[in-house]
Design a protein around this nucleic acid. Structure first.
Length: 118
DNA sequence: GTGTTGACTATCG
DNA sequence: ACGATAGCCAACA
């Protein structure tokens, strides 16, 4: 219901932080050995077209985060960071350690790696 | 307030 | 399969 009063800056900031929290919560729920796309993470977090928000939230994670950021890849089944970059190699190494394999094109080798929630 | 940016994505040729 | 395009939305200059 419209209360007539516009949301304050503080309320907007709080809403933005809650969106980020939901995104992190969803990512944290991705099982080991599975991957999820940016768009799917956003959808599970209640954001219809929030793929870029997921990307933004991940890009700004602290180095020592416990969130499994490496289980999030793009809708093409490929790692989103530039190939050959430091983050790219680390993400691929971490996924491989969980059993997620890639083909020569840089895409995950099996559709069964995808996770769509529970 | 306006314009640009980006770890995105669906669609088209 | 692949590159170009347009749509998307929060943060930033």
């Amino acid at each position: 219901m419209a209360s007539g009063t516009r949301p304050s800056a503080a309320e907007k900031a709080q809403a933005a932080e809650e969106r980020r929290q939901r995104i992190w919560q969803v990512i944290h729920a991705i099982p080991s050995g599975r991957v999820c796309s940016y768009g799917m993470v956003a959808r599970l977090a209640g954001l219809a077209n929030g793929a870029r928000q997921t990307a933004w939230a991940l890009r700004h994670l602290p180095r020592d985060t416990k969130i499994p950021w490496f289980r999030v890849i793009n809708s093409q089944g490929k790692i989103a960071m530039p190939e050959g970059s430091r983050g790219y190699r680390e993400q691929r190494r971490r996924l491989k350690a969980e059993g997620v394999t890639f083909n020569d094109s840089g895409r995950i080798s099996s559709r069964s790696f995808w996770w769509e929630g529970d």
